[in-house]
């Protein structure tokens, strides 16, 4: 039994047409994004299935998935909040903001809340330095810019409701 839905596998197959015939490994990054959007993270089996669709060795997928920071090869919370920690954002309070996030969620960076709802991660510059502090939440990755404590409180409430609804 495959864990990726036939829909996702179809989407990945479609992606291949964007690249020359013998170069379909090129579809690997977009394929992994699709797999992760469906699964929430990338279990080994999902990576193996991607390898099969693209006709490459599983190790070629592991090599790539572990190189790029957007792919979660370990299980994460339902929502992953990724907040920028790079210099420019820090000039406008990103460090204090991250600390507030930790307090509010009662977890440290890299951890997941007890209810499995939220994983908090710091990431490097998101190219939103003029509107920091900034964070994003997969799989849509819409940026939340000019973050304040109040905005963050509201966001968490929103995620809690969304998390309940999807169950």
């Amino acid at each position: 039994m495959s864990i990726l839905s036939s829909n996702t596998i179809q989407e990945i197959t479609k992606l291949k047409s964007r690249y020359p015939d013998d170069r379909q490994k090129s579809a690997l990054l977009p394929a992994l994004h699709l797999a992760q959007a469906e699964q929430g993270w990338l279990p080994v089996q999902a990576m193996d299935e991607v390898a099969e669709v693209l006709d490459i060795q599983p190790i070629e997928v592991y090599e790539v998935a572990t190189f790029y920071t957007m792919f979660h090869v370990k299980k994460v919370g339902k929502f992953v909040i990724e907040v920028c920690r790079t210099g420019p954002c820090c000039t406008v309070g990103a460090e204090e903001f991250v600390q507030y996030m930790e307090e509010k969620l009662n977890i440290k960076v890299g951890e997941t809340t007890e209810d499995g709802l939220i994983t908090l991660k710091t990431v490097e510059c998101l190219a939103a330095c003029g509107t920091g502090p900034v964070l994003q939440i997969g799989p849509e990755y819409i940026y939340q810019e000019n973050m304040t404590k109040k905005k963050f409180d509201d966001l968490i409430e929103e995620l809690k409701i969304k998390g309940l609804k999807d169950v």
């Binding site: 080994v44 592991y62 090599e63 572990t66 190189f67």
Partner: peptide
């Protein structure tokens, strides 16, 4: 059929079969 490679990146890169 290669089963091992380089995983992770930077100074935590490692040679591994991953699983």
């Amino acid at each position: 059929k290669r089963v091992h490679g380089v995983i992770n990146r930077g100074d935590v890169s490692e040679i591994s079969t991953y699983i």
